[in-house]
Design a protein around this nucleic acid. Structure first.
Lengths: 232, 232
DNA sequence: GTGTCGTCAAGAGCAGTGCTCTCGATTGCC
DNA sequence: GGCAATCGAGAGCACTGCTCTTGACGACAC
């Protein structure tokens, strides 16, 4: 029956998962550069060549870890968003920000794999883009719903975006339907501001400078929300 | 005489410099993970063990490259700032932003070494902090001079920073004398926003999303300047 | 000028890595 | 029961960072 073949595939899936789990643990300790296929194999009681039955190369293992990471972060973001009342747009944004920061601070090496220098090859493969969009999709929904509820009031202190970026805005609008180019531009800036702040903290740029990081982060994200036009 | 000993030290300094030059070229091509002491030694016509007379370990070579990188970026920022009239504060800020972006886009792997995941050890050593402050010093000067010239008018749409960050603001004030906690908070946010934007672009987060990157960058940095309070 | 000492490059060698290939053994399907 | 696909083990290759020893060269004191 199919059951038998399914049994084989099941143990394969289980071993694949065990490999990524161990690899993720090693990654958390040693960083991407220190992740060794042989060490993972040793811990599994396998010989190193056996790993290649499951991942054709070390880079593919890292890519799998990247995809898992994006999904884990995306899930954390989704859960954080879900804990806040739907019409508290600023609260939802702040919850998302905190989720990203806490996820990153708890696993700096994994975060570095996602948003630091991409280790495998120069550009991460296409496969990582879709799961990477999971978190930003939540953010887009928050902004879009705020727009739809007419609760978004961007302060009129910024210039209009140049027409050149209109095609890009069109692409982003699939995530934030109903938003003007100006709102889209502010949203992208807020999103990069979030990750800029988290990266600076995780990668040590705040050493000897910002010590009260949670408080400053909270304030900075509140300011980003205001500039975006989310209610105070 | 000392001349002879100086001659010896001079050839040593020259070889040290040649090593870092070759290493920097390899870094630009293969990234930090692919930098090999043996490959550098081969290109120099030396045997690999000879390199250890100049750098006690691969991590020390990388640290030297980090320091050189911070200095190069800092110099690029200083030069960019110097090309703009002293009282055109917004122009100086934009010049600094463009310098950072162009430097990063031209050498993504080197930029990743500075602002992506720190490769050697978990935290870059103390030695890298001082040269790393060179760029931010320029930025601090721009803001401080704008404050002194009473040309800084931060739009009153943001909440005041919480008292908890006052001690941190005190530290940053050494870079931006005369600035209020609010201005300092905005300045830090603008600075992290700059690097968040550059990192997103260099690390490929804008793939399939933002294509007109120079134009969007220009606009976003103009907006950050406005939020900071620099004149329109 | 001679001898001594510090500096240096070369070479061999060790432990570790990613990856390939071959070879039995086991498993699943007809 | 036999066939074919799958899988783990093992050996091996080329490469890495790093250590240690050896021998040569240059700088200094005498």
């Amino acid at each position: 029956m199919n059951a038998s073949r399914t049994a084989r595939e099941r143990v394969r899936a289980e071993l694949t998962r065990e490999i990524t789990d161990i690899a993720r643990r090693h990654l958390a300790v040693d960083g991407a550069a220190g992740l060794s296929l042989r060490a993972v194999a040793r811990e599994m009681g396998m010989v190193s060549s056996a790993i290649y039955r499951y991942f054709p190369s070390r880079d593919d293992l890292l890519t799998a870890l990247i995809i898992d990471g994006y999904n884990a972060l995306g899930e954390a973001v989704e859960k954080a968003d879900a804990t806040v009342p739907r019409d508290d747009f600023t609260g939802r944004w702040l919850a998302v920000c905190r989720a990203v920061r806490e996820w990153a601070v708890a696993r700096p090496h994994e975060y570095a794999l996602l948003y630091g220098s991409p280790v495998p090859g120069y550009r991460a493969p296409e496969d990582t883009i879709a799961p990477g969009a999971r978190g930003v999709a939540v953010f887009g929904r928050i902004v879009a719903e705020a727009v739809a509820a007419e609760r978004l009031a961007p302060p009129a202190v910024l210039p209009e975006p140049p027409p050149a970026i209109a095609p890009d805005a069109e692409v982003v609008r699939t995530l934030i339907p109903g938003a003007s180019d100006d709102v889209i531009s502010r949203a992208v800036t807020a999103w990069t501001g979030l990750f800029g702040m988290v990266s600076f903290e995780v990668f040590g740029q705040f050493t000897n400078t910002i010590d009260h990081r949670a408080e400053f982060f909270e304030h900075a994200m509140t300011c980003l929300a205001r500039v975006l036009g989310l209610p105070a």
